[in-house]
């Protein structure tokens, strides 16, 4: 029997009745579903996972490597989709996120949940078949950690939400290394630690500026619970820890001269900008200092990983030690 394009059936689900979410029409644009995957985060995940694969002193079939990278990206996108499903009520009250597909009413929450779960299971299974089950297990852990541990539990209950939750964002290099070697090595672990320690100063710099919005949304970010001054001190502490940690690849032998230079200058700049955040506490100057740190932190991480990629991928590696 031919389908009748003008007719469809709508069914209600408890999920669709979550508060703060506008009623929606039947299905969104393809672009809305893509937006659910947080494409910018996916791009970052592809990048860091690729670096994790590149710094590993071993090789993988390029076809298997490319498919694995795609699955890691899809898995990360799926966790972002599940995060948007769960946080639709919070997203609806924050200016930065209120135009996302669910709070804007372009996609129903139930659709996003189905989409996220399907991609989660699919990406883990294909990664397991393509590479190995350790990397698939790590991807599954990342998805569960971000969607359940961070989004559903930590985000609304503790000011350490992004500190602990940062582990999810830090895992892709480790997954990349697991794809190549089938094991967890020093290189992947060090890159994990760098992203993990980088996360608090990065997010808290933004949270200092957006503290009012987080308060309205009921999210206990550090500036709202411990206060801005304590947050500024903690930002500096993490940056001081991050600067030498960023140089660890040099001492462990997989970061060369280019990386060492970028790590040294970038690490010092992170500390200097954190000092500015600590010193400028009032008015527009305070916001400007915080946003400068936020913006530079992205550049810093990008340059660190780009340096590793250039050295290991393009053969520009020149050892600093020995």
């Amino acid at each position: 029997m031919a389908a009748t394009p003008s007719m469809t059936t709508l069914s209600n689900s408890a999920i669709s009745d979550r508060p703060f979410v506008e009623a929606t029409t039947s299905g969104g644009e393809v672009a809305d579903y893509f937006a659910l995957l947080k494409p910018r985060v996916m791009a970052l995940v592809i990048f860091t996972a690729l670096v994790g694969m590149t710094v590993t002193p071993s090789h993988v079939n390029p076809v298997i490597g490319a498919i694995s990278l795609l699955m890691i990206a899809v898995g990360a996108g799926a966790s972002g989709c599940l995060n948007m499903w769960w946080d639709a009520d919070v997203d609806a009250v924050m200016t930065r996120t209120r135009t996302r597909p669910i709070p804007a009413g372009r996609i129903q929450p139930g659709e996003a949940l189905s989409f996220g779960l399907t991609l989660s299971v699919g990406s883990v299974l294909v990664l397991g078949l393509a590479a190995n089950w350790l990397s698939a297990g790590l991807l599954a852990f990342t998805i569960v950690f971000y969607a359940v541990i961070y989004s559903m539990w930590l985000k609304r209950s503790t000011a350490q939400n992004i500190v602990i939750g940062g582990a999810a964002g830090a895992l892709p290099p480790m997954i990349g290394q697991a794809v190549v070697t089938g094991s967890i090595g020093v290189e992947g672990t060090v890159l994990f630690l760098i992203i993990f320690i980088w996360t608090p100063p990065h997010f808290w710099a933004l949270a200092l500026v957006k503290a009012g919005e987080y308060a309205r949304a009921g999210i206990p970010m550090m500036p709202n619970t411990a206060g801005p001054d304590s947050t500024r001190r903690q930002i500096l502490a993490y940056s001081v820890l991050l600067a030498p940690l960023g140089l660890a690849p040099v001492f462990l032998g997989f970061g060369g001269m280019i990386y060492g230079l970028v790590g040294l200058v970038g690490g010092l700049a992170m500390v200097a900008l954190s000092v500015q955040v600590l010193r400028r506490r009032e008015g527009e100057a305070a916001n400007k200092a915080a946003m400068s740190l936020f913006g530079f932190s992205i550049l810093y991480l990008f340059l660190l990983f780009s340096a590793l990629l250039a050295e290991q991928g393009l053969g520009l590696f020149r050892p600093v030690l020995g």
Binding site: P5, S6, M7, T8, T9, L10, S11, T25, S26, G27, G28, E29, V30, Y33
Partner: peptide, 17 residues
Amino acid sequence: PVPQQLTPDEIQRRRKR
């Protein structure tokens, strides 16, 4: 389930999906 008429815009979106 309640049958509901789709608008031309919704039909086009469904086709793209």
